[in-house]
Computed example of a mutant assay.
Amino acid sequence: MIRTMTAAGAAACLAACLAAPALSQDADPGRTEYMIACAGCHGESAKGDGPIAGLLEIHTPDLTRMAERAGGTFPYEQAVLVVDGRNEIRAHGSDMPVWGDRYFVSAMASDGLDPAQGDMMARGRILALVSYLSAIQQ
């Protein structure tokens, strides 16, 4: 489902983002999202060697080789869809957490946001994360 946002909604979303805890001037929000959401399984280096990886029943992929596995071009859209996970049919579970839901719930915990604003905040966090993944390709 595609949602649109009014100018007032965009302003409220921006205000909520600005009210969030500040990162240092040189901080990369995508790297921050990665370290919070992904490093436990994929490792700080994104090589698939996080502290939880050995406890999983699946192979944790090396995220620095996504472009290589996709024929040399970073699969930006696919990465966004996998990280978001809200549009996947997961009748039998999944190997990946549904970060779109988690980010949406987190955004909605902020006062005064409507669902469209929460969705925009969730998508922003996902895009920052995927942009970081794109930047660390080897």
Rank of each mutant, 00 (worst) to 15 (best):
Q138R: 14
R69H: 13
A10N: 08
R125G: 03
L63V: 03
D119A: 09
E57V: 05
A128D: 15
D84H: 07
S45F: 04
L133G: 02
Q138F: 04
E57S: 06
L23S: 13
E57P: 06
C17V: 10
G100L: 01
G43H: 04
A70Y: 10
M120C: 01
L113F: 04
A116T: 08
G124W: 00
M96H: 09
L18F: 10
G48D: 09
D62W: 11
Q117Y: 01
G48F: 11
T64N: 08
A46K: 06
G85A: 07
G112P: 00
A7T: 12
H59M: 09
L55E: 14
L56T: 08
A27S: 13
N87K: 15
H92P: 03
Y76I: 11
P97Q: 03
Y103C: 04
A16S: 10
C41K: 05
G43Y: 06
L127V: 08
A135S: 15
R3D: 11
A53P: 12
G50L: 07
M96N: 09
S131C: 07
M108V: 01
E33C: 11
D26F: 06
A11K: 14
A11L: 09
D114T: 05
P21I: 00
A15C: 02
A16I: 03
L81T: 10
D101N: 13
E68G: 07
L14E: 12
L127E: 11
I58W: 07
K47W: 07
A79I: 06
P29T: 12
L129R: 09
A15S: 10
G100Q: 02
A22K: 14
M121R: 03
G112A: 02
H92A: 11
M35V: 13
C17S: 14
R102A: 12
G118D: 00
P75C: 12
A122H: 00
L18S: 08
P61K: 14
L14K: 13
V80F: 12
G54R: 06
T6R: 04
A122G: 01
R102I: 15
G112W: 05
A46E: 01
L14P: 00
H92G: 06
A39C: 02
R69N: 14
V105W: 01
L133K: 02
D95Y: 06
S131F: 08
W99H: 08
D84V: 10
L18E: 15
P115K: 10
H42Y: 05
Y132V: 03
V98E: 07
C17I: 10
Y34E: 05
G124M: 06
T32M: 13
K47R: 15
G112K: 00
D49W: 09
R3Q: 14
E33I: 11
R65S: 12
G100V: 05
G112I: 05
M5C: 07
D101T: 11
I36N: 14
E88P: 02
E33V: 13
D114E: 11
L56A: 05
A10K: 15
T4R: 09
S106C: 01
L14F: 02
D49Y: 07
Y76L: 15
A128H: 06
A91R: 10
S131G: 15
Q137M: 08
C17R: 13
H42D: 06
I36F: 12
A22S: 13
A53D: 09
Y76A: 10
G30H: 14
A8W: 02
E68M: 10
M66A: 15
A128K: 05
Q137I: 09
A8F: 01
